[in-house]
Design a protein around this nucleic acid. Structure first.
Lengths: 220, 220
DNA sequence: AGAAGATTGGAACGACGTTCCATGGATATT
DNA sequence: AATATCCATGGAACGTCGTTCCAATCTTCT
């Protein structure tokens, strides 16, 4: 009858497993999450974990949903539509910045409950923005593609470099290589070396978002 | 002295290995490329492959570079800048559509030689478009983020569904779910169900690109 | 011809995701 | 109170992967 009184005080549960998985992912990145590491941290065996979780994909999906749900909690609803879209996008960006492994997962499974709330939040605000109905889908899809695309890119960047490699050092190395490119073949990239070295990912993300919003505003 | 006369007629070479890897990737997707499958197809052992290739990452990078280089071959240079950017982006989109595994790799290693040509191609055309210099980096970064972001998304979608699952069936399933969403909580997504079911990824990609270009055009 | 080096093929290693199963603790039944 | 039932556990074992290692062979040079 009682479904929960069964269990010991320190019993396993999907929640506890997901919590431990998030901790491992945050500490060591995507590669660090193994059922062996998880079992060690929870002082149990992999078989016990499988009793609560279907497989690794299920675990990653649950972890991602947890993070996204937290990130979206309490996002202001009273902003004007344009600011609302920016706020929503920034919540997602910052969540992925803090937990880079979420970015990869978010591209892999974009139809999860928490994602729907983002999709709807953006779409609803587009309507409030006065975008003509025939342009809704194009505008929505451009924004969603951009936001989730950048998310995936950031995740890929984070996966590339070792957990604690200096980002600015890696960036400076690329900028230096660009500055040395053949001026005949690569006149533009040479000039981009400096801004590339000094740029802030978050600012660029917002700038791109604003350009799309400006483009959407031209549709009348 | 002669570096190539050494070898037997059917000798291994990085080119042959990459060629076989591309064939395996195209036939079976990312998961199908293993050193065992590769060794079997080339009738050799994994050790021999490692003599020519540093590791799996090296192999994937070389395969990606091959595809992107082919895709970019002969892209028209005489178009007006706006059409040039669209042509460049479409080449990349179509290449990833034909070889979905390229999408994941392209996000992972965006600093490869073939990528530089795309980066420069887009940047140079932005200059020709008359974008003011202070907006170059923002405009460039928005376009590149969008183009490569969508690339990654498409790759993720392809990885998700079994190699030959009907795309339209999967889409119809999601659309049906959206059509059944609570009208109070999800008024927008409900209306998006139909366009989602019928949309074409390539058209949406272009529509988003045009919105960004329209936004860039507002910067004066 | 023989030495030296380049290239090959496959065995072996450690780590992974997953499955299997013998065991234990809690509940329900007598 | 004793027993049967079922949920839950922990760890051994399986098959696959990327990678390393090495003995055997093939090519070129002296």
């Amino acid at each position: 009858m009682t479904t929960r009184t069964h269990r010991r005080a320190d019993a396993l549960s999907k929640e506890k497993i997901v919590e431990a998985a998030i901790a491992i992912l945050d500490e060591g990145g995507e590669g660090a999450l193994t059922f062996r590491a998880l079992a060690a941290r929870l002082a149990t065996g992999s078989g016990a974990i499988y009793w609560h979780v279907a497989d690794k994909g299920d675990l990653l999906a649950a972890a991602t949903d947890t993070i996204i749900t937290q990130a979206l909690a309490g996002v202001a609803l009273d902003l004007d539509p344009r600011q609302g879209i920016r706020a929503l996008a920034l919540r997602l960006f910052d969540a992925i910045d803090a937990h880079p492994w979420v970015g990869a997962q978010v591209s892999r499974e974009p139809w999860q409950p928490a994602m729907l709330r983002i999709f709807e939040g953006i779409g609803g605000r587009l309507m409030a923005l006065g975008v003509p109905e025939r342009a809704w889908f194009d505008a929505w899809s451009a924004l969603v593609n951009y936001i989730f695309g950048v998310a995936g890119q950031n995740a890929a960047n984070a996966r590339q470099h070792a957990p604690d490699t200096d980002r600015s050092a890696a960036l400076a190395a690329i900028a230096a290589r660009w500055a040395r490119l053949d001026p005949i073949e690569y006149p533009f990239l040479r000039q981009l070396a400096d801004p590339l070295r000094d740029h802030d990912d978050r600012d660029q993300f917002l700038a791109g978002l604003d350009l799309i919003l400006a483009g959407i505003a031209t549709v009348r």
